[in-house]
Amino acid sequence: MLELRKTENEDAVRSFCQYSNLLYTDEYESYAALDRGKLVGYCIFQLGGTLTIVDVGVKEEYGAELCDGLVRAVFHYASASGVNSAIFADVFDDDIWKLLQPYGYTDKSVHDIDNFLSNCKKCGH
């Protein structure tokens, strides 16, 4: 069973930064994707007045669907935290960005997360 959950362990966030070739900062947070308890993906983000999606990494066999799922999980988290706009960081991987485009990600900024989540359901299908 696939589970997406917020990572509370700082060492895990540090590991995700290493996988993404990012310098760790304590401002980074993450969501992890686990399949039967095994890590299969992650999303690194910063939450402030605006949500910044820094990077997404998934095992290749899980593909674009899991990338989209992780970003949407983080969008939900941000919205529940009172943040309703998001941007994708300049360092966000171009290949992952291309995978996300069929799912409704047409601009690297989302001005209304709630609207995006309500109106762009399963855009890739």
Rank of each mutant, 00 (worst) to 15 (best):
L117P: 12
G49W: 07
E8D: 12
Y19G: 04
A33F: 07
S79I: 08
C123P: 04
L39V: 06
A32K: 04
G69I: 01
T106A: 12
A73M: 12
V110Y: 04
G124V: 03
F116Q: 02
D94K: 15
A64Y: 07
K98L: 11
E29H: 12
L22Q: 06
K121S: 10
D68C: 06
Y105I: 01
S30W: 01
Y42P: 00
G82W: 05
L34M: 13
D114H: 08
A64P: 08
Y24K: 05
Q18I: 11
I96G: 03
M1P: 08
L34G: 07
Y28R: 03
S15H: 11
V74D: 01
D93H: 11
E65T: 06
F16E: 02
S30F: 00
D35N: 09
F88E: 00
N9P: 01
A73C: 14
Q18W: 09
V40C: 10
K6L: 14
N21V: 08
V91A: 14
A12N: 11
Y28S: 03
A73R: 12
F88Y: 05
D11L: 14
I44R: 01
Y62H: 15
A64V: 02
E61F: 10
D95V: 08
L117K: 07
D35Y: 11
L117M: 14
N9A: 09
D93Q: 11
G69F: 01
E29G: 13
L51K: 07
